[in-house]
Design a protein around this nucleic acid. Sequence first.
DNA 1: ATAATTAAAGACAAAGTTATCTTTAATTAT
DNA 2: ATAATTAAAGATAACTTTGTCTTTAATTAT
Lengths: 147, 147
Amino acid sequence: MFSKATEYALRATIYIAQRSSVDNKLSIHEIAKAIDSPVSFTAKILQLLTPGNKVISAVRGPKGGFYITEQCKKLPVRAILIAMGESEILDKCVLGLNKCSEAKPCPMHSQYKHIKQQLISLFETKTIQQLAEDIDDGTAFLNVKKN
Amino acid sequence: MFSKATEYALRATIYIAQRSSVDNKLSIHEIAKAIDSPVSFTAKILQLLTPGNKVISAVRGPKGGFYITEQCKKLPVRAILIAMGESEILDKCVLGLNKCSEAKPCPMHSQYKHIKQQLISLFETKTIQQLAEDIDDGTAFLNVKKN
DNA sequence: ATAATTAAAGACAAAGTTATCTTTAATTAT
DNA sequence: ATAATTAAAGATAACTTTGTCTTTAATTAT
Ligand code: FES
Ligand code: FES
């Protein structure tokens, strides 16, 4: 559904939301290890989420690292998708027409549109914080290690 | 959602189902033009659907081309996905865990699983023929030309 | 001030996907 | 038989995505 880059962005953000605070910032090494992703690549990706503290925040130097504000924890998942430039995935036509639209629909459209609407509302309503809570609970997981 | 290759495979198959018969085979040129796809690439892709007349059928030589049997028209869309090796897209985890599972779910899973189930049943129940009929009707379209 | 630590920035490499082009094989028509 | 027509097969190129490595800049502690 999403690119590797976006998957890492989602997992990293959730992990940061679960574990960090302004006075307990997380290093990129810890984050990458926790979500089982390549360190340097993950660093690159997080750079898309930090400018203007759009989604997460970063400070350089000793005691530096990544954290997320309480405010940003309340952002919907979609904010991450937008920052990753992968928000338009929900405008894509299943059959690859240039746009999924009512005006010139593909033959999957009439059925797919209902499913699409649910996906959109899922990403609109679920917040970063809510996802992090599920990790806290132990009802959900973020790493990928095969057992 | 799908790769370009799979999108072309879906559109091509639907077009073949709509227009071809055993005594009216379609050339790869006509197909590619109709679905607005690169000719040679589309030819490559259709080679994944022809072996054993799995989804579509092809004959070489003059009066040759592509067609689909009445039997194959009744196949679900999923048959195309399987032939394209993109069926496991429905087993993929939204956050990129190695497997979408109840056993070790990601924090999107509990909500996503219902949507996933609808996608699976859409691809399982919709047949190639049904999609082709929507094109016949003029209620749906297969090409991508920007207007 | 200096050294240490951290993310940011940038150059590059590896792998995968998409696309093109040429040659071959099968079939038909003459 | 020969030529013409069509898809199959194969080689290769262009582009994108994923990933690594090195250098730079910011911040902190000494
Ligand atoms: S037009 Fe194809 S999914 Fe909407
Ligand atoms: S485990 Fe992530 S979507 Fe099912």
